[in-house]
């Protein structure tokens, strides 16, 4: 498959602080890729390496078929970037910033610019600091979406947007996907990730801990089973991937990993099932499990 971004074994330290510790990431051309992880896990550092603003200590980074450090300026014609924290020049209006950034990227679609300004309800005449955080963010979003590029790199672009604008943003990104553009979207908003992303990568402590489609990730998590059985539940505690088993008379409740679901159900039906409810993991649970510390997950797997 053709990758717009492929990173492997990326290391980056700032003095004694290890920001990236062997990070891997691959983003296929044409997909919207969610880039998730707790605060300080290294998302922004990765993005800044991709933009050639930071030099990697170790590892290989390929961006649109080039090296982001050496070919920065020529690669940047083909991408647009929305920073997580947008700072504008105090004496330039928002409209001027949009035009300037667009022209520096090699031109922007003036019709699309106008359309986006209306859609995002942005006043382009205001200057630098008179914009609120959300409106500064909109300036950067409009500038990026109005330019004609293959790849959009967005670092928490919707932090500070109201729910209405968040919906506008999601609609705009789905339009970009239809046009065949690749998007790397770092975000904490799960609904946004669920609605937009084809695949996600979750990083923690500068390392990729999970990558795949949301369906893939769901497979890796546990289902909660609650059942009323015909007899006393036997043999369930012997099963390897069953956790938090609770037995009250003939009633049983446990969590089971997707890989062992089949076996657990067979064990239940061998006793006889009167009623059964199963609960797939919510997206929140899925992420919380990946976001919490390694020590927790070790403890969980040990129990």
């Amino acid at each position: 498959m053709d990758n717009a971004i492929s990173i492997s074994g990326l290391h980056k330290s700032f003095g004694r602080t290890k920001a990236l510790d062997g990070l891997d990431l691959s983003v296929a051309t044409g997909e919207v890729h969610g880039f998730l992880g707790p605060n300080g896990s290294g998302k922004s550092t990765t993005v800044r390496v991709l933009l050639g603003l930071l030099r990697a200590d170790k590892g290989t980074v390929n961006l649109l078929g080039g090296d982001p450090w050496h070919d920065a300026a020529s690669l940047h014609r083909r991408l647009a970037y929305v920073p997580g924290d947008v700072s504008l020049w105090p004496n330039l209006s928002g409209g001027e910033v949009i035009d300037l950034l667009g022209r520096l990227r090699g031109g922007l679609d003036t019709k699309r610019r106008q359309e986006l300004i209306e859609r995002f309800d942005l006043d382009p005449k205001k200057k630098g600091r008179t914009y609120s955080k959300g409106n500064r963010q909109k300036v950067a979003i409009v500038a990026a979406l109005a330019s004609n590029v293959e790849l959009l790199i967005m670092d928490e672009p919707t932090a500070g947007l109201d729910p209405l604008m968040e919906a506008t943003f999601q609609y705009a990104i789905s339009e970009e996907r239809e046009k065949g553009r690749t998007v790397l979207l770092s975000s904490h908003i799960l609904a946004e990730v669920e609605a937009l992303c084809d695949r996600v990568s979750i990083i923690r402590n500068g390392r990729t801990v999970e990558t795949g489609t949301l369906a893939d990730l769901r497979h890796l998590t546990r289902t909660t089973i609650s059942a009323e059985l015909a007899g006393h539940p036997n043999g369930l505690s012997r099963l390897e991937h069953v956790h938090d088993l609770k037995i009250e008379g003939n009633h049983v409740r446990f969590d089971v990993e997707t890989s062992a679901l089949d076996e657990a159900l067979r064990q239940l039906s061998s006793i006889g099932v009167r009623s059964l409810t199963s609960q797939p993991p919510t997206l929140e649970e899925l992420f919380l499990r990946h976001y919490t510390d390694t020590s927790d997950s070790k403890a969980a797997s040990a129990s």
């Binding site: 933009l51 920065a72 940047h76 014609r77 970037y81 920073p83 520096l104 950067a140």
Partner: peptide, 17 residues
């Protein structure tokens, strides 16, 4: 420091330029 240079360097502007 004002993080205004990063959006510029993310365009085709080179550092030396």
């Amino acid at each position: 420091v004002g993080i205004r240079v990063e959006p510029l360097l993310a365009t085709r502007v080179s550092r030396l330029g």
